[in-house]
């Protein structure tokens, strides 16, 4: 991979980060832009990424062209909601795991206590003599 290709891949990564949509959609958009960028670079013998920025715009500008401002607001709101739900699920899971660990530790402690306690009971002693009789 030469310098310009590396710069293009970095540029595409930045576009991907700026896009607010599902993974498949991101991949589709970036793959289409990749095609166009490479066509532009090859057709015009370009080896400076600044020219790509100049022709296609910054990653932020490109991401913006995919959404109207209203859509962008809606998407951000939905993303926020989804994030809250995600955090709530992760939080609940962590609490559940902690609860399981605590319960396991507690029952382990109880078992240890139970078996380490001295035991008292009656012991019957039998005596067997040389004739084999038990007394």
């Amino acid at each position: 991979m030469n310098n310009i290709e590396r710069d293009i891949e970095l540029y595409l990564d930045k576009i991907k980060v700026n896009l607010i949509c599902k993974k498949e959609e991101k991949n589709r958009i970036v793959s289409d832009i990749r095609e166009s960028v490479y066509d532009f670079v090859e057709n015009n013998n370009i080896n400076d990424i600044k020219k790509v920025y100049g022709h296609f715009g910054t990653p932020e500008e490109i991401a913006k062209t995919y959404y109207s401002e209203k859509e962008l607001e809606e998407i951000k709101k939905t993303a926020k909601k989804e994030n809250y739900i995600r955090y709530a699920i992760i939080g609940a899971f962590i609490i559940f795991v902690i609860a399981v660990i605590c319960t396991a530790a507690n029952s382990n402690r109880l078992l240890k206590e139970k078996y380490s306690r001295p035991r008292y009971g009656l012991v019957q002693v039998y005596n067997i003599d040389t004739n084999g009789t038990i007394s």
Binding site: I29, I33, S36, F56, G57, I62, T65, Y66
Partner: peptide, 11 residues
């Protein structure tokens, strides 16, 4: 036209 705008139309 910016490619981004065109792709939206094509999609």
């Amino acid at each position: 036209m910016l490619e981004g705008s065109l792709y939206l139309i094509l999609y």
